[in-house]
Simulated scan of single mutants.
Amino acid sequence: MIDAKTLLATRRSVSIPALREPGPSEAELNEILTAASRVPDHGKLAPWRFILFRGVAAPALGKALADLAETREGPLSEARRAYEEARFTRAPLVIGVVSTAKPHFKIPEWEQVLSAGAATMNLIHAAHARGFAANWITEWVAYDEEAKRLMGVAAEEKVVGFVYVGTPSEVPSDRPRPDLSAVVSDAPMPVVA
């Protein structure tokens, strides 16, 4: 496993076409999901859940989503239909992260949503720590109510994203990162009127 400093400094999103077999074993997946669950969670609500898109369900859902897209948009091109049908088979494993945030007497919904985002990032770091690569995307299916229903996401839930996981077939290249001077500032002195 990678030490934490190296892990944080080397994590990169890898393009989905570059994610190949093998994906995580069941034991590795359990470790990844356990690590993903170790996030700040005010009130111990676990305001998120994971959906594993794999096996025979993955291509079946892709076909159902392609059919849904066609009912909305009219006949799909051959390339678009193939893209939609392969939606959950483009990597060895796709993990949907779902926010289950809801009103709470003490815990703001925003904090619950942030916890779901933290779970997603922990999932990506945990995969990277085990030698896998990942890519976090959403696309239209994350925001379409009928698509959400097909994927087992309730109307009151929100899709945080889909994390595609596999073994990288190439060394990921880095991309420009923000200059710290553009994103870091000291708190201002209060102005008293």
Rank of each mutant, 00 (worst) to 15 (best):
D41W: 13
Y164I: 11
D174K: 13
I51G: 00
E85M: 07
G96N: 11
D186A: 13
T6G: 00
G117N: 04
K102H: 09
M189Y: 13
E145G: 04
A118E: 10
S37F: 01
V171M: 07
V165Q: 01
L29T: 10
R90N: 07
P190L: 13
M189R: 15
A133D: 08
L76A: 10
A134M: 10
I107R: 01
K148M: 09
E145V: 10
V153T: 06
N135W: 02
R130L: 15
A155R: 15
A58V: 12
T120N: 00
K63P: 01
L19E: 01
P188V: 09
R175Y: 02
S15W: 05
V191M: 01
A182I: 07
F105C: 00
F132W: 08
P176I: 13
A134N: 08
A126L: 11
N122T: 13
P17E: 07
A134P: 00
G152Q: 03
A101C: 08
A86P: 03
D179Y: 00
V94E: 07
E85L: 07
A9H: 07
A142W: 13
A116L: 10
E73F: 09
F162M: 01
P17Q: 05
F105D: 14
E31T: 08
G161A: 03
E28D: 15
Y143H: 10
S181H: 05
V160Q: 00
T167P: 03
T34H: 05
A187P: 06
A18L: 11
L29G: 05
A79F: 06
R11C: 06
E84M: 12
A116M: 06
L29P: 13
W48N: 03
G152K: 01
W110N: 04
A155T: 06
A119Y: 06
E157H: 11
W48Y: 15
W110T: 04
M1I: 11
H125Q: 12
L29Y: 06
V98E: 03
I124S: 04
R11Y: 08
R80C: 01
P24C: 03
G62F: 06
E73K: 14
M1W: 03
A142F: 07
E28Y: 08
L114D: 07
S77R: 12
